[in-house]
């Protein structure tokens, strides 16, 4: 196997007294789709923010392209594409203006920005909205613009944090196909999501974290104990002991002041 494109060694992150990431070590190889999953508050988004350079204070070592992330932050950022969850963007702008703004931050030529934006928005059936202010676009449409913005500079590594939120069924199929196409081009994809069925289908390898630690790491086949288990069942067993039925009963009871 070739050398890893991302190497994480003993990565820890604390907010005050709270340890969010606790001694994470991980190798990611080029051309892989990594499904990064975990319960709410497990530390997924923190990992993503460190990998994208948004958070720069952490202990441990992260190497990307064989170079230290800390010392080569700009070089890494220029080769990484980030697609965040929740459509956080300046929605007074039009998609064209926003993409032009983001493209400039990646030092792209204007004609390249224009050409790529048009083509990509066209694939998302959003070309007609290219000059429409984004405050009038739906959440899913904004998410499509964010996906375009994250891929505009042709990144080598794509980091996605719940990229399907708000997308309709057709767009979900499109993005799933896009993941495969990006993989064919040799891109590495770091995919964070709660949608277990999607993760199960698209990922070459699944990393499960809980309380800031990696508790499972392998292909879906390796994670399965018996052949019947779905990723959802594995997830539940590893992160909560699998007593969701009892918890649901307790919830319903609490509402009625029973038990």
């Amino acid at each position: 196997m070739s050398s890893p494109i991302i190497t994480i060694r003993h990565l820890s992150k604390q907010y005050g007294d709270k340890t969010v990431l606790n001694d994470i070590s991980l190798d990611i190889y080029p051309g892989q789709i990594i499904g990064y999953i975990g319960p709410n508050g497990a530390g997924k988004s923190t990992t993503v923010k460190i990998l994208t350079g948004i958070i720069q204070e952490y202990t441990g070592e992260v190497d990307v392209f064989g170079k230290s992330l800390r010392d080569n932050i700009l070089e890494v950022k220029s080769k990484v594409g980030y697609i965040p969850e929740l459509a956080e963007l300046y929605d007074l702008l039009t998609p064209r203006e926003y993409l032009s703004f983001v493209g400039k931050l990646y030092h792209l030529q204007d004609d390249i920005i224009e050409e790529r934006s048009r083509k990509m928005l066209d694939s998302f059936s959003l070309l007609n909205n290219i000059d429409q202010r984004m405050d009038s676009l739906s959440k899913g449409m904004k998410q499509k613009v964010l996906i375009t913005a994250g891929l505009l500079h042709n990144p080598t590594i794509v980091i996605m944090d719940e990229p399907l939120s708000g997308l309709d069924a057709n767009a979900v199929i499109l993005v799933k196909e896009l993941l495969q196409a990006l993989k064919q081009e040799g891109k590495t994809i770091f995919y964070c999501s709660h949608m277990m069925d999607v993760v199960e289908k698209v990922s070459d390898r699944i990393v499960l974290i809980n309380n800031g630690r990696i508790i499972a790491d392998g292909t879906i086949e390796e994670l399965r104990q018996s052949s019947a288990d779905s990723l959802e069942q594995i997830f539940s067993r590893l992160t909560s002991g699998g007593d969701q039925v009892q918890k649901a009963d307790d919830l319903a009871a609490a509402m009625n002041d029973r038990g």
Binding site: G53, S78, Y90, L105
Partner: peptide
């Protein structure tokens, strides 16, 4: 801005 959270883009790009 009301949309101050959209400023993540400055941090994730090679500025």
């Amino acid at each position: 801005s009301d949309q101050y959270k959209a400023a993540w883009i400055y941090y994730a790009t090679p500025v």
